[in-house]
Each structure stands twice: as C-alpha cells, then as structure tokens.
Write a protein that binds this DNA or RNA. Sequence first.
DNA 1: AGTCGTCTGTCGGACGCAGT
DNA 2: ACTGCGTCCGACAGACGACT
Length: 341
Amino acid sequence: MLKKDRIEMEKNVLVGVGEEEEEEEEHEDRCREYRKGNWSLTETMVLIEAKKMDYERRAQRLKELSRGSSGIGSSRPQEMRWKWVEDCCWRHGCCRSQNQCNDRWDNLMRDYKKVRAYELSLSAGGNPGLSYWKLERHERKEKNLPSNLLPEIHEALTEVVQRRAMAEKARGGGACAAAARPVQEERQLGGASASMQHSSPGAGSQAPEPPLIAPPLPPYPPPHSRPMATVDSEDSQHSVSPERKRKRGGGGGSSSRSNTMELSSAISKCASIIAEALQAGEQKEETRHKDLVSIEERKAKLEESKSETSSQSMDGLASAINKLASSILGLATDRMQKLQK
DNA sequence: AGTCGTCTGTCGGACGCAGT
DNA sequence: ACTGCGTCCGACAGACGACT
C-alpha cells in the first residue's frame, strides 16, 4: 500500500472525501488544509515540543498502568500517537499532517543522531577542538554530518530524547521498553556514522540511557528560550483517525531486552578499552619523545665536554712547549755568557 | 497476523551559482 | 536568459522489531 495509499489518504483529509464522520473531531480533521513546503524553525520547534509532551504523556500513562490503576489507558484502544502530535501542532499554529510530522521527525532524528554520534566519538577520543559546531560547512559535509543543524533544534531534541528515555523507564523499569533501540541503533551506526562509533553503551538512537544523551556538548550559542506555549498534556484519544498508509511501529521491547543490555554494555566496554588504548598509546609516544630529547641532550653534553677536554689538553701542551722553549732559551743564553768569559 | 514506531536508502523538486 | 551542476530537504518505500 504505501505511497499510493498515503497520497490517497492525504487527499481524503484535504478534500474531505470519504465515509461519513463518526466523530466531530474526525470531521474537523477532514477540513484541515495542511501547509506544504519547507519547515520553518518555529514549526520545527512546535513539533519537537509536541513530541516531548507525547513522551511525557506516555510516561505518565505507563506509570499509571504499572501501578495497576484501571485508568483510561488500560481499556482504551491503542492511541494514534502521531495523530495526537498533529493535533498538538495544529493547536500551536503548525498546520502539518501527521505524515508530515512523522517524516520531519525522522529527518530531524537522523541529523541529530549523526551529530550526537560525532560528538560522542570526539569525547571518547579526546579531540575537543573539532566540535561539530565549530566545523565549517564543507567540513561537516566531508564527515557526512548535516550541514546546518541548528543549535536550538539540537538542544530541544536532546531534551526530547531524555523524555523518551524517561518514558521507556516508566514502561518497564527501564528494562522492557526500547529493546529494539540498541539494535536499530547498531544498524544505523553501522551505516552512515559507523566509523565514528566509539560511543559508549547506547550511543544509539533514542538512547535509553540519559547520560549518553547529553554528552558534554561543545559550546554553541546558548539555545534561545523556546517559548512554547505549554499545551495541556491532556490525554485526548484519537481512537479513530485516518491511518497512515505506511506501517507504523510500536516502541517497546521485552524479550531481547537483556541481550541488548548486554550488547550495550559490551559496546561500552569496547569503547572504553579503545579510549584507554588510545590514551596509553599517546602516553607512550610522549614518553618516547621525552627519552629521545634527553638522549640528544646527553649526547650534546658529551660532545661539549669532549671538545672542552681536547681544547684543555691543547692548551696544556702549548704551555708546556712554551715553558720548554723558554727554558731552552735560558739555557742557551747562559752558555753564551760563559763562553764569552 | 495486523499494526505501529523507528531507521535507512533513495528520489525529486526547489534553489543557488557559475558559465555561456 | 538559458543551461548545467551541486546542494538541501521533504517525502516515499521498505525493513525491522515490538506490541496487541
């Protein structure tokens, strides 16, 4: 189904073709006219904020569920998260469809992860001078990094990724949810940015582990405050809404969770081993250099003392010859005087 | 089995720029 | 003005794993 279906779906949403609406909300959706063209910074920030709230909302519900509360969540059909995000964006003036939001989010995360992986590799390799934010455009491109990821966006995405980590923790005590994540991350990193991967555990995508999420990022202009109007994180259900043509997938993991955790820790260990090896290598190199310098110094001193010694001996020899000459001269003059007498 | 979220490779339109 | 080229970015398609 994919492309055709998706286009068809969008068309229905735009034009309002289709079955009779079951809900008023649905009707409202069909009347929406989605904006096209490039995403402005404001729209992007609205989307990021919406996603952040989405994760908060999920974490909250999962907490409720884990407490065994019979709350809304347990019985209601699976929510349409992207529909919720679309509505949230819509309320804040970002008139985009759920598909557009999803695609934009995908692209944002793609860029964000590249930058994060790069920054992580820098911090692991002790290479502070080459931060992504200090790179020239062409340098970024050479390194297969996004050419113009804005600091504000990066900052906001970092926050959202942290929300997600929290949501996933809430889901399974941090153990069950994003099981697939590390694997997917592996896949991703193995691809475009594999070469930069020293990262530690979970350097992967939505990183279940917050510490990695916010590695000491190189300084970039302080993120402008994002005056996102706080949307009430109401739990609005869009139980019914035009599905996407594309497959969508849920988020958590369970059975392979422990395996992926092991994998994460193994990767982490490898990363630290590599970092230690690099550091040790550098130290050895430095020690060797110092040794070479001291040897050179000793050699120079030896040369100096050698020449000094030889010059001293020459001086001694000359003075001895002088003494000898003067004594011969004295002896000769004595003889001459005796003969004259 | 069906659905969904994420990741990844790819395509195509819009745009800027240099050369003619 | 036109053309060719390169780049950017939204969008599409499919794979994958997890959930229901």
